[in-house]
Every structure is written in structure tokens, then in C-alpha cells.
């Protein structure tokens, strides 16, 4: 099958996943103790007031009726209004999701940028001091909780040195990236440790491959051998890992966004869960599922580009 066909098929496969996740999210939020109305009105509301508001929002209907209504609107692109913010959920997500995606993408770039050269230095000097040093530092990175790294970065680079803002998102793309840099670094650190460990192991394996000897026997320079012959083969297995891990970056984003006061979907999700903002939780869960699916698809495309054998 050609590449375009493959991409189309994969996009189609996202749909059933999305439906399933939509159903699960819809049911799960309603199983949570408490409900949005009592949350909104507080402890002093009378039962009558609560019941009236619930009826107004359709929350008194049986769950399957609510679901059918939700589906009917959803297929028309209407995912309802946020119960807490009183704005369309779609608008809320459209505002917040790009922030988180930018944060995750920046974190991934930083993680790769750190991991690839260091994995090389480590592998080429395997079991000598540069290798030990790099692995020791990354071991610390891997085992440090994100909120701790975040607070540390804030204290040093934002509060003390004043190189970076202590939080927020700024205006304009350059300013956004500037604001997101420290949170991205916090998010990237343990991720880069994961990439670096995997890549170091792959590089070591590839270095013993006979095609590397053949490349050397041709009189190629060390640089070409490492970058063209070794790196590309070593990346094949690591790319899969990077793709899988980008999904869990979104989890880390919740913490990072809280520490750095970044207005992304991570924080929105947490706030919505506390407010029992059903519509936001449902829609956001589905939106994140789409993002994760597209990430996996992109990973597979990169993989196919790296490895012609996978394109079959």
C-alpha cells in the first residue's frame, strides 16, 4: 500500500477509538461523586434550587438520554458549553490546547536535542569516564519528580537570575516560546533521560553491526559513519519510544502547567475535574485522544522514512 493510503486508513482508524473514548469519558465523569450543580452553588443551596438547575442543564435525564443528546450535538460539531466558564467547550479547547501542544513539542525537541549528542558521546566512550558521567547525571534527571525540577528551575533561572519569567504565557509566538522554555525544560529532563538510555543502547548495538565495518572499509570519515550509518539505524527503535512517551508528556504537562502557571489544557483538565465540568472533561478527553493518535501516526511516518523496510 502506498503511504497516502496508509495515512488515510490510520486517520479512519482514529474514529472508532474516538467513539469508544467518548463513551468511556461520558460515563466516567458521571460516576464521579458530586455533580457540577452542587459544586457551583456551594453548601448553602437548597435541594429545590439544585434540582431546578439540574433540570435546566438536562442532568436529571437518564444517562442514555443525555448521551444521545450529546452525540446528536457532537456530530454537528457542538460539544456544549462549559458548565463553569459558560463558553463553548470547543472555544475553550481551541484556546488552551495549542499552548499544551507547543509545550509538549518544545519539551520533545529539547529532550531530543539533549539526548542525541550525549547518547553518542556516551556510546562512543562506552564504559569510560564521559559515559559514566553522562549516565550518572541522567540517572538523577530520570529520578527527579517534575514538580521538584520545575520549582528548582523557577527558583534559579526565574526568581534569582531573572533570565526567564516566573510564569504565564505572554503575547506573540516568540514570547510564548520564551515563557514556555523553563516549563519545557522541566518536562524534558526525565524524557531526555529515557531517550538517551534507549539511544545509547541502540548505538552500541549498531556499532557492532557488520555494515559499520563495511562503511569503515570504504574509507568513510568517522563523522559520516556515525551520522549517516549509525545514527539513522539507531534512531529506528528510539523513535517508537519517543512517540509512545509523548503521550505521557501530556500527563507531565498537568504538573508543569500548574507549577509555571501556564494556561494549557493540563490545568484546564484539573480545574474541570474539581468543578465536575462534565462537558469540558468529555470533550478534552476526546481532543487529547486525537492528539495522541496523531502523534502515533506521525511517529510511524518518521519510522517509515527512517527505515525503508517498514514502508512495505
Amino acid at each position: 500500500m502506498n503511504r497516502l493510503g496508509m495515512v488515510g486508513l490510520r486517520l479512519l482508524q482514529i474514529l472508532p477509538t474516538l467513539v469508544l473514548i467518548g463513551v468511556v469519558a461520558f460515563v466516567l465523569v458521571r460516576l464521579l461523586p458530586g455533580d457540577p450543580v452542587s459544586n457551583m452553588l456551594g453548601d448553602h443551596a437548597t435541594d429545590a434550587t439544585i434540582a431546578r438547575l439540574q433540570a435546566q442543564m438536562g442532568l436529571d435525564q437518564p444517562i442514555w438520554v443525555q448521551f444521545l443528546l450529546f452525540v446528536r450535538h457532537a456530530v454537528q460539531g457542538d460539544f456544549g458549553d462549559s458548565i463553569a466558564y459558560h463558553v463553548p467547550v470547543a472555544r475553550l479547547i481551541a484556546e488552551r490546547l495549542p499552548v499544551t501542544i507547543t509545550l509538549a513539542a518544545l519539551a520533545t525537541l529539547i529532550a531530543i536535542g539533549l539526548a542525541v549528542p550525549l547518547a553518542f558521546i556516551s556510546a562512543v566512550n562506552a564504559d569510560r569516564w564521559p559515559d559514566y558521567l553522562i549516565r550518572a547525571v541522567f540517572q538523577v534527571g530520570l529520578s527527579s519528580p517534575i514538580f521538584y525540577v520545575g520549582l528548582l528551575l523557577l527558583t534559579v533561572f526565574a526568581a534569582a537570575l531573572r533570565w526567564f519569567p516566573v510564569g504565564g504565557y505572554g503575547e506573540g509566538i516568540g514570547d510564548h516560546l520564551y515563557h514556555l522554555f523553563l516549563p519545557a525544560v522541566a518536562l524534558a529532563l526525565s524524557f531526555s533521560a529515557v531517550i538517551m538510555r534507549s539511544l545509547r543502547a541502540s548505538i552500541l548495538a549498531v556499532l557492532t553491526a557488520e555494515f559499520v565495518d563495511f562503511a569503515r572499509s570504504k574509507g568513510l570519515s568517522q563523522r559520516i559513519i556515525l551520522l549517516r550509518h549509525v545514527l539513522r539505524n539507531a534512531l529506528i527503535s528510539t523513535v517508537t519510544l519517543i512517540g509512545l512517551h509523548m503521550g505521557s508528556l501530556l500527563g507531565g504537562a498537568v504538573i508543569t502547567e500548574s507549577v509555571f502557571a501556564v494556561p494549557g489544557v493540563g490545568r484546564l483538565m484539573v480545574e474541570s475535574i474539581f468543578a465536575r465540568d462534565y462537558t469540558v472533561i468529555q470533550a478534552l478527553t476526546m481532543a487529547l485522544a486525537v492528539v495522541v493518535s496523531l502523534t502515533f501516526l506521525a511517529t510511524d511516518l518518521v519510522q517509515m522514512w527512517l527505515d525503508p523496510r517498514a514502508a512495505k
Binding site: A209, E210, F211, D213, F214, A215, S217, K218, R228, H229, R232, N233, I236, L306, D307, P308, R309
Partner: peptide
Amino acid sequence: AMIFQEPMTALNPVL
């Protein structure tokens, strides 16, 4: 120059 026994492993699979 040199050639090897097993071209499948001596040739780089991704180039």
C-alpha cells in the same frame, strides 16, 4: 577494499 560473507548484514539496510 573489502567484501564480506553476508551482504544482508554488510550492507546498510536503510540506505
